[in-house]
Amino acid sequence: MKSIILRTASNYLLPLLLLFSVFVLLRGHYLPGGGFIGGLVASIAFVLHAFAHGLRKAQRYFPIHPGFLMPIGLTLSLLSGFLPILIGDQAFLTGLWMADPLPVIGMVGTALFFDLGVYIVVVGVTLTIIFTISETA
């Protein structure tokens, strides 16, 4: 698996794929994409890196175990659901939006944070599973 071509390619592929995954996440509300797909793409980026450079190198990108991403993402999604209750006295998970779009990111609202939470959870879940299996294989 550790061919030079793959190693060299994955050095460029990791940032590219990560960038792409964020792009997929952000545009998800308007065009195909979203938290699930973005998260899966990001995970694949790391898995590819692990194949090319070994597990340890890939794990070095994470100061904490990727498992901790799961509670972070869940909390983010949950909070974005609670935000309408706290601010606008509206029902759980009601969408709130800023009046004007930000540059690059586009429209910002609670749904975006919710999707970001999904993205983080998916990355956490996938990488926990894959890393755990590779470690004990």
């Binding site: 699930f36 998916v122 996938t126 599973i129 755990t132 299996i133």
Partner: peptide
């Protein structure tokens, strides 16, 4: 289906590890 695909990924991962 999107939900189902993602959930079944979780199920499959768990089942595969269970075999192991």
């Amino acid at each position: 289906i999107l939900t189902a695909i993602v959930i079944s990924f979780g199920l499959q991962a768990f089942a595969i590890v269970l075999i192991k």
